[in-house]
Design a protein around this nucleic acid. Structure first.
Lengths: 227, 227
DNA sequence: CGTGATGTTGATTTTCCTCAAGCCTGGTGG
DNA sequence: CCACCAGGCTTGAGGAAAATCAACATCACG
């Protein structure tokens, strides 16, 4: 764990686009920054565990973080995958004192770490910070409900198609995207076993989706929409 | 639609226990109340539809509300079931301008209706209102993530067992609870077809769970925990 | 005592998980 | 440069879970 690093300019740009910091005035911004530490972690490193006392929340600057739960037999299920710009465990600002899931890096990752108690105090003083927290929570909640609907309403190939479509140009025609992470991570994101993701990809082949490594090519975006 | 009713004392009590109004000072409380209207609706009445312009959010005072999505073929999937005290669509205060799912009463229901724009303005002025919103959003987000974990990690009988256990006395031994709504609603809540819920109940019979109408009797709460 | 809504049960099918084996790729060391 | 290896990915076979469809039971209620 490599702490108290200086922000790279890229990390700084990511941070400033977060709903969490985007709307802040100069004063609030300074106060948030003085409260923040930067942490660099290797891949597969545990950030916190379910049940631990929660004293910080985080924003992903680069890399990916997996939030997951375990059942009694030890099987893991991902609850959320956090990409650069995503905030996690911020719901504990006003929703309890313990982490409710495990958090682990999915690759080499840098995080911005915020002290929960200090941000709570700041939010009481600066209305724009409170507003930023509400914006972040709202978006987070909407995307989580979206996830439930997606799980309950769509089959594996449909979920994969949705994922691809959300990252394709809106007009029809051919397109090509590159996965920003391993396929096993995408599988967890969509609530699937890795094998199921693989099969979903191959079932999309017949409507013009080809996958080589992390590159996904779509013959006709509109055809994908009708799945 | 019966609007602008006076609050019954029971409805008022429900409202005051909501995270949304519980922590408010007298001044904020008055301002929220003047902004609020009470709506009574019959069963299976649509409250709003996905895609509509969002100008209000709601708190359930009595009855139940179903939030759901449709897929292309018209199949419905519940995203959330709101009980008395629950707030819904409050994420649109800071997260977009359109409703993201359908909302429908599951039985005769009374709602407190709040104007989104007005509450947004209030939240800027009164820090305790902002705090109440953050608390409400945080709880809501935690329970929604809980729901994803439950869906992805547990089988139908396990989900039913969890539901029962969450409403039973914590110590072991026998217990009895009464469903506050139809079984079909519980099925939707747990992400199951009604038939699957029925089968889950009958599979729990062998560990001492008996169901008659809306009454569920548990022989030994501890036995249920080990499922 | 019908009537319609709600819940149950059975049969079938779909979907996806699990386990096991093989493949492909990129990296390492000889 | 090549053999080897490990990790991630794919494919296949089998099976478990739950959806769907259909028939029947139960219940509330006029």
């Amino acid at each position: 764990m490599n702490s108290n690093l200086k922000l790279t300019s890229r990390d700084r740009a990511v941070l400033m686009k977060t709903p969490f910091l985007a709307g802040l005035g100069g004063n609030s911004l300074v106060r948030m920054f003085t409260n923040m530490t930067v942490v660099s972690l290797p891949t597969r490193k545990t950030i916190f565990r379910e049940g631990e006392q929660a004293d910080a929340f985080y924003c992903v600057l680069s890399g990916y973080v997996r939030l997951y739960r375990l059942n009694r037999e030890g099987r893991e299920a991902d609850v959320r995958i956090c990409a650069p710009g995503d905030t996690f465990a911020e719901c504990l600002l006003y929703g309890g004192t313990k982490y409710r899931y495990h958090a682990q890096t999915a690759e080499a990752t840098t995080l911005a770490r915020f002290d929960i108690q200090e941000v709570r105090d700041l939010a009481e003083q600066e209305t724009d910070i409170a507003k930023a927290i509400m914006t972040s929570l709202s978006r987070h909640l909407l995307s989580t409900m979206e996830c439930i609907a997606n799980d309950r309403l769509h089959t594996a190939p449909q979920r994969v198609a949705n994922y691809i479509l959300a990252r394709c140009p809106v007009d029809g025609g051919p397109a090509s995207i590159r996965l920003p992470f391993q396929k096993s991570l995408l599988a967890g994101m969509l609530g699937l076993a890795p094998e199921a993701l693989s099969r979903a990809f191959s079932s999309l082949r017949k409507i013009g989706v080809t996958v080589r490594g992390r590159v996904i090519q779509v013959g006709d975006v509109n055809a994908l929409r009708n799945i």
